[in-house]
Design a protein around this nucleic acid. Structure first.
Length: 587
RNA sequence: GAGGCAAUAGCUCAGCUGGAUAGAGCAUCAGAUUGCGGAUCUGAAGGUCGGAGGUUCGAAUCCUCUUUGCCUCACCA
C-alpha cells in the first residue's frame, strides 16, 4: 500500500504539472513528496484523497475545478490505468485503488518471511535503558509500565530495522538497600529467602518495610543506616558481603519476574560498579573549560542560558553524584558499544534531570549526544491516590499478575473452556499478561494512568484478551482447514475475489502494518501498535461474522478468504509480539 | 515564584505532517445465536475538543493569553 501511495502522489503531481502547462500558468509544478495525501472520512469516498485547496490559489481556480480537471488528466495517464481511478468529489480528488491487483500484492507480501520488518530505522544503533529498579524491594505496578514500554519499544525499533541493546541499570547501592540491611541485621537472624518461603526480592522488601518498625522503636535507625552507607563506601568487608548477599537475593527475584512477564535485557549495569566512573570525565570537562570550579571546591556547570540552572557535577569533597554517574555511564557505554541514540525509559518526574544530562553531554562535544531521548511516562495512580510504599498502597508486580491470572482462570472455567484451553494455569497466565501489557501500553506514555483493577480485569472491549481472542478464533479456522474441514480445501485462492467492501477494508488494514510499525518507531509510541492490533482484531471480528470462510459455498472464495484469515492471523501475531501480548492458539 | 507536561462523550482513551459530518471501548437503551468458538456482533443515544483571542481558504491540531491538575526546580536517586 505504501508503494501504491507513492505511485499516486507521483500521478497527481504529474497531472498538476500537465494542468499548469495546459493553463499556461507560470508556477513551479509540485514535488510528488509534497503532495498531501489523506484518508477520506468514509470508505465510500475512496481509499485516499488529495485536498485541492493548496493548488486552488496557485492556479487561480476553485478547488472543485482543479479536482475535476485533474481527474480528467489522470484518466488519460497510462500509469493510472492499472492502479485505479481518480474522481473529483467537491474540493477533493479521491482515488479508488484497483482492488484485485492491490489485494494480490498485499497477500503475497504478507506471505513473505520478511513481512513485518521495515527499514525506516535501519543503520541506527539504539541503546535502551529501562526498568532500572532499586534492589531493596520487589517491582511494583510502575515498573510494569516501565518494563512494558522499554521491551515493546525495543521490539518495535528492531522490527523497523534498528540494532537495539537493552540495558538494565540496577541501583544496588545507597541508603535504601542499607535500610533493608539494617532491618535484616536486627530481625533477620541470618535467615534466607528459602527459610521464609519467600521470593528473594520479596524477602528483602519485607525487611525494607520492617525498617519503618525499627525506626519507630529506635530513633537512631536512620543515622545507623547512613553509617552503613559510609562503611560500605569505605570498603568494610562485612558490610560489602552482606550487601552482596542481599542484592543477589533481590536480583534473583527480579529476574524471575522479568522471565515471567517476558522482559529481557542484553546487559545489566550495576550501580556498585558504575557510581564513580563519571568523575574523570567531569575533571576532563573542567580542564577544557566546559565546567568551572565554584569557590567551595565543587565543580559546576551554568546552564542558565538555555533556561536551566546551575548544576553541581562533582561535590566539593570530590565525590560523584547521580548525574556524574549518568555522564560516566553514557560515555563508557558508547566506548564499548558505539550507539547513535539512547533512550532512557524513566518516569516523568526526572524530566529536568535528563534535560541537564543531555545538555552536559552535548557541551562535552560528543556527536552522539544529539540523539538522546528521555521516554518519559506518567504515574500509575490508584483510585485512592499516588502509590507509596509507606502508605501500603503499593501494588506489587507479582501479586498483581497472580491476581489477574486467577481472574482469567476463573473466566476460563466459567466459560467451560478448560478442555480446549489445555493447561488452564498456563493460558490464564498469558491472558493476564496480555491484559496487563495492553492496559499499560495502549495509552500514550505521557498520560498518567488511573489503574482501575476492575477495568483491567475485564476482558471485554478495548483489551488485550480481546485481541488474543480474535487471534485464537483465526487460528481455530486455520486449524480446522488444516485438518481437512471446509470448502477451502477444494478451491484455489484468487485475490481478484477480494473485491467486496468488507474484504477490501480488511486488506487495506492488513497492508498498513509496516506503516504503523514505522510510525510507532519514529514517535517511540508503542500505543500506535497496540491501537493497530485492536483495530485489526475488531475489523476481523466484524468481517468473519458475516462472511463464512470454511462454510463458504464457493470453494475458490472459501480458499481466498482463508488466505485473508491467514494474513490477519499473521498480522495479529506480529503486532501482539510488538506490544508484549502473548499469542494464543486457543483460549 | 520559575520551568515542564496535560485538559476531547457520564467514565477510560484515539485523533498521524493543519483538511471533508471529531472516533473507539466501558456504562445506558434496543437487537442478533438450528452458524468457522457469544470472551462476539449490529444499532441508538451521548461533544460549543477547559476558556478567550489570533494565524489560515480550513484549527481538537499551530501561536498568544488564561483557568485547572500533575511533576520538577538537592553537593538524594
Amino acid at each position: 500500500m505504501v508503494e501504491s501511495k507513492t505511485a499516486w502522489k507521483r500521478i497527481v503531481a504529474r497531472a498538476l504539472a500537465a494542468y499548469i502547462a495546459e493553463k499556461g500558468q507560470d508556477c513551479a509544478p509540485p514535488d510528488p513528496e509534497s503532495v498531501v495525501l489523506e484518508r477520506p472520512p468514509k470508505p465510500e469516498l475512496g481509499d485516499f484523497g488529495f485536498p485541492m485547496f493548496p493548488y486552488a490559489r496557485l492556479l487561480r481556480a476553485s478547488p472543485q475545478a482543479v479536482a475535476t480537471a485533474l481527474a480528467a488528466i489522470i484518466a488519460r495517464d497510462p500509469e493510472s490505468h492499472g492502479r485505479g481511478e481518480a474522481r473529483a468529489e467537491g474540493p477533493y480528488l479521491n482515488v479508488r485503488v484497483a482492488r484485485a491487483a492491490e489485494s494480490a500484492r498485499v497477500l503475497a507480501a504478507v506471505a513473505d518471511p520478511t513481512w513485518g520488518r521495515t527499514t525506516s530505522q535501519a543503520g541506527h544503533k539504539v541503546l535502551i535503558e529501562f526498568s532500572s529498579p532499586n534492589t531493596n524491594k520487589p517491582l511494583h505496578l510502575g515498573h510494569l509500565r516501565n518494563n512494558a514500554l522499554g521491551e515493546s519499544l525495543s521490539r518495535i525499533l528492531r522490527a523497523a530495522g534498528a540494532e537495539v541493546r537493552k540495558v538494565n541499570h540496577l541501583n544496588d547501592r545507597g541508603i535504601n538497600i542499607c535500610r533493608s540491611m539494617l532491618a535484616y541485621l536486627r530481625y533477620g537472624e541470618g535467615r534466607s529467602p528459602e527459610d521464609e518461603g519467600l521470593k528473594g526480592d520479596h524477602f528483602v522488601g519485607k525487611y525494607y518495610v520492617l525498617f519503618n518498625k525499627l525506626k519507630a522503636e529506635d530513633p537512631t535507625a536512620e543515622v545507623a543506616a547512613q553509617e552503613l552507607v559510609r562503611r560500605w563506601e569505605s570498603g568494610d568487608p562485612e558490610i560489602r558481603a552482606l550487601q552482596e548477599r542481599m542484592n543477589a537475593w533481590t536480583f534473583e527475584g527480579l529476574k524471575a519476574t522479568y522471565a515471567r512477564t517476558g522482559i529481557s535485557f542484553d546487559a545489566y549495569d550495576f550501580e556498585t560498579e558504575t557510581y564513580e566512573i563519571g568523575r574523570e570525565e567531569v575533571l576532563k570537562g573542567l580542564a577544557r573549560g566546559v565546567f568551572y570550579r565554584e569557590g567551595d571546591g565543587s565543580i559546576q556547570i551554568d546552564l542558565e542560558d538555555v533556561g536551566l540552572d546551575k548544576k553541581v557535577l562533582l561535590r566539593k569533597d570530590g565525590t560523584s553524584i547521580y548525574i556524574t554517574q549518568d555522564i560516566g555511564t553514557a560515555i563508557r557505554r558508547h566506548e564499548s558499544w558505539p550507539y547513535d541514540r539512547v533512550v532512557y525509559v524513566v518516569g516523568n518526574e526526572q524530566q529536568y534531570h535528563f534535560k541537564v544530562l543531555f545538555e552536559v553531554l552535548k557541551r562535552l562535544g560528543f556527536d552522539w549526544a544529539r540523539d538522546l531521548h528521555h521516554l518519559s511516562y506518567g504515574m500509575v495512580n490508584l483510585p485512592s491516590g499516588r502509590m507509596k510504599t509507606r502508605e501500603g498502597t503499593i501494588v506489587d508486580a507479582d501479586d498483581l499478575v497472580d491476581e489477574v491470572a486467577a481472574m482469567a482462570a476463573a473466566e476460563i472455567e466459567a466459560k467451560g473452556r478448560e478442555e480446549s484451553a489445555g493447561s488452564v494455569k498456563e493460558i490464564a497466565e498469558k491472558i493476564a499478561l496480555g491484559a496487563l501489557h495492553y492496559f499499560l501500553l495502549h495509552v500514550a506514555p505521557v498520560k498518567d494512568i488511573l489503574y482501575d483493577p476492575a477495568a483491567s480485569l475485564s476482558f471485554t472491549g478495548d483489551t488485550g484478551p480481546y485481541i488474543q481472542y480474535m487471534g485464537a478464533r483465526a487460528a481455530s479456522i486455520l486449524r480446522k482447514h488444516a485438518a481437512g474441514e471446509g470448502n477451502a480445501v477444494k478451491g484455489r485462492a484468487d485475490p481478484a475475489l477480494l473485491e467486496g467492501d468488507a474484504e477490501w477494508g480488511l486488506v487495506k488494514l492488513i497492508a498498513e502494518l509496516p506503516e504503523r510499525i514505522d510510525q510507532a518507531a519514529a514517535s517511540m509510541e508503542p500505543s500506535v501498535m497496540a491501537g493497530y492490533a485492536h483495530d485489526l482484531a475488531a475489523a476481523f471480528s466484524a468481517w468473519y461474522r458475516d462472511n463464512p470462510v470454511l462454510n463458504c459455498p464457493d470453494p475458490n472464495l472459501a480458499a481466498t478468504r482463508l488466505e485473508l484469515v491467514r494474513a490477519v492471523r499473521r498480522n495479529l501475531e506480529l503486532a501482539s509480539q510488538l506490544v508484549c501480548i502473548p499469542v494464543l492458539e486457543s483460549m
